[in-house]
Structures are given as structure tokens and as C-alpha cells.
Design a protein around this nucleic acid. Structure first.
Length: 306
DNA sequence: ACAATGGATCATGCAACTCA
DNA sequence: TGAGTTGCATGATCCATTGT
């Protein structure tokens, strides 16, 4: 049978076998006979012209490399079919269903709970599921279809993504409360470069902060590196160095109860833009569009409050 | 060696569809 | 409308492999 003529049932059976690692168990889960599943797998293999599984008699089946690749695409397709069915079922009805979004760790901690809280109050029939990770993880999720929309920085994003900037985060200096410059309204980063620096050492942040110092033609004396914003704040609060951040925090007190001071920078430095991102050639479902609209409005209020 | 496990194959029945 | 066709599911059975 031609690939295009295969029923979706064949693909569902294939995913079930891949998940179970065993045709008989998959058949039980699908409430069909084992030969029916065997036949479906054989039909798919014939249509594709590749072996999807290695049969290990009495030990089940194992995906071949081709099978692994096909599985990824089939999952994507079935997810889109589900979305399609949900969309059709929702025609003429209120927005409902599940929305899968991705979020950078810092943006998640600082903004996402407020967004989800407000959004689910407004749309109680939409369930928001989020995936937390770095830029690469979020891009992979969108490419593979299990993240529909992501909140991340508009830094180093390929052109295949549609990007809508939500909030510009200017760089500022974070100092120990008793630092000699902590009481100043604004300073130049050049006044700090000879002191030990604490660096937020995340893949994108690393490059961003390099660009900040690069803009002034200076190099920081990096004394400590960490992947946690909160750890950066604690190191600074304990007098172990200064840092440059663009993460506005509502509190200057750290986990260990120490105090920091945020001081504006007078230098012309690049800012870090928070953006809503999705695949450019992927039309957002109504639930995702509603989330995007709500997020845009949320950050508009944040900008006004800043 | 033998029992258990699990995939493949075959014959058959059923339901939906086509066509005269 | 009824006979023929097609596609799919099922049970029975076979066969390969593993574990004891």
C-alpha cells in the first residue's frame, strides 16, 4: 500500500509498539489482536521500504535508527492531527484544550506564574503545560512540535522563527549593599572592571554579557561563574564581586538574607529583549493565539509599571 | 531438555462498500 | 436489492529464542 493511503491507525499502532517495546503488550493496550498490530507494522515498513524494528524473539522488538527517526515524525503528525480534531471540535465553541509552551528558566521564575495565573482565570477551559529549558531545548521543542510557543530572549534565534519582542531588559550593575558605589544613582561599567566579577554563565547569557563588556572595549575580571541567577545575587551580596544583570528583581534581599543594590549603568549597552517565539511557517492555533495576546497585554502592563 | 514468551502466518468471519 | 469485493480483526498454530 502507498504510504499516503495508510490509515492513521497504522501510525497509532506503530507508536504504541515503540512505546511498549513489545507487539503483544501494545496490542493489549490498543484492545486489538497481536496479529493486527504485526500486520500494521509490516504495512508501514513495506510502505516506507525500511525496517522500523529489530525483532528479538521472546524479547520484544527494538527500534532501528530509521524507526527512531520515523517515530519522531509520526509523533509530530499525530499531535497535529489531535490539534486538528480539537480545533474542529471547538468550532463555534469557547476556547478550550491544552496549550504547550516553552520558557527560559529565568523568565519562568520571574513572569510565567503571573501570566499563567491570569490567563487560566480568563480561559478556565485551557490547560497550560510548560517546558522549562535553555534556548536550544526550546528551539528543539518547537521544531519537533511539542512546544507551540516559547518565551525566551531574542538572542541568536534563527530566521525560521517568528519573533515578537515583549520587554527590553537593560543591563544594570548589582553590587553588595555596602559597596563604595552602591549609593550612586548611576555609574559607568568602566568604574567596576578592575574589581572581581560574578558571571551568570549560561549559554546565551555568556555571549550576551560578553557583548555588554565588548561594547565598552573592556574585559571583566571573572572570579566566580554560576548558572543560577539567585547564586549570582548571593555571591554579590556577600561581597565576592559585582555582576551585570538584566533580570529585574522585585527584591534586593538574597536567599541568605543579605542585601544588594541595583545601580543603573550610564553606558550605551545592548539590552536583552524578552520575546514570544514560534515557528514562522506554523499558524498558531486559537488557544496559542489567545495566550500570545494575553502575554502581549501582560508585558505592556509591565512596561508601564517599570 | 523443556516450558514460557512473543512475533509471524494462515484460514475464517464480519462489516462496509460497489455495482449491476 | 442482493451478490461480489475489499479490508480488517480474530483464533489457532507455528517457530525462534530465552531462562531454568
Amino acid at each position: 500500500m502507498n504510504l499516503i493511503d495508510l490509515p492513521l491507525r497504522v501510525l497509532r499502532y506503530f507508536v504504541a509498539v515503540a512505546d511498549a517495546g513489545n507487539v503483544t503488550a501494545a496490542a493489549r493496550g490498543l484492545h486489538v489482536s497481536q496479529p493486527a498490530v504485526s500486520l500494521a507494522i509490516r504495512q508501514l515498513e513495506t510502505a516506507l521500504g525500511v525496517d522500523l524494528f529489530v525483532r528479538q524473539h521472546a524479547r520484544g522488538v527494538a527500534l532501528t535508527p530509521a524507526g527512531t527517526e520515523v517515530l519522531r515524525e509520526v509523533r509530530k503528525l499525530l499531535s497535529q492531527v489531535n490539534d486538528f480534531a480539537t480545533t474542529l471540535a471547538g468550532v463555534g465553541h469557547a476556547l478550550r484544550g491544552t496549550l504547550s509552551i516553552g520558557c527560559l528558566a529565568y523568565i519562568l521564575a520571574r513572569y510565567l506564574p503571573s501570566i499563567i495565573s491570569g490567563f487560566t482565570r480568563k480561559y478556565p477551559e485551557i490547560e497550560v503545560v510548560f517546558h522549562e529549558g535553555d534556548q536550544g531545548f526550546l528551539q528543539q521543542g518547537m521544531m519537533e512540535g511539542w512546544i507551540e510557543l516559547a518565551l525566551t530572549y531574542d538572542l541568536q534565534l534563527p530566521r525560521r522563527f517568528a519573533i515578537e519582542r515583549m520587554l527590553e531588559l537593560p543591563a544594570y550593575a548589582l553590587l553588595p549593599a555596602d559597596h563604595r558605589l552602591a549609593r550612586r544613582r548611576a555609574i559607568s561599567l568602566k568604574e567596576l572592571v578592575d574589581e572581581p566579577c560574578v558571571l551568570l554563565d549560561m549559554p546565551i547569557s555568556r555571549d550576551y554579557f560578553a557583548s555588554v563588556f565588548g561594547a565598552l572595549g573592556v574585559a571583566p575580571q571573572v572570579r566566580y561563574r554560576t548558572q543560577s541567577v539567585e547564586a549570582v545575587r548571593s555571591l554579590v551580596a556577600n561581597g565576592l564581586g559585582y555582576t551585570v544583570l538584566n533580570h529585574p528583581s522585585r527584591t534586593l534581599t538574597t536567599y541568605d538574607g543579605k542585601q544588594t543594590r541595583a545601580v543603573k549603568l550610564t553606558d550605551a549597552l545592548p539590552s536583552a529583549p524578552i520575546a514570544a517565539v514560534h515557528l514562522a511557517d506554523h499558524r498558531l492555533r486559537p488557544v496559542a493565539q489567545a495566550f500570545l495576546d494575553f502575554t502581549r497585554e501582560f508585558f505592556r502592563r509591565e512596561r508601564r509599571a517599570a
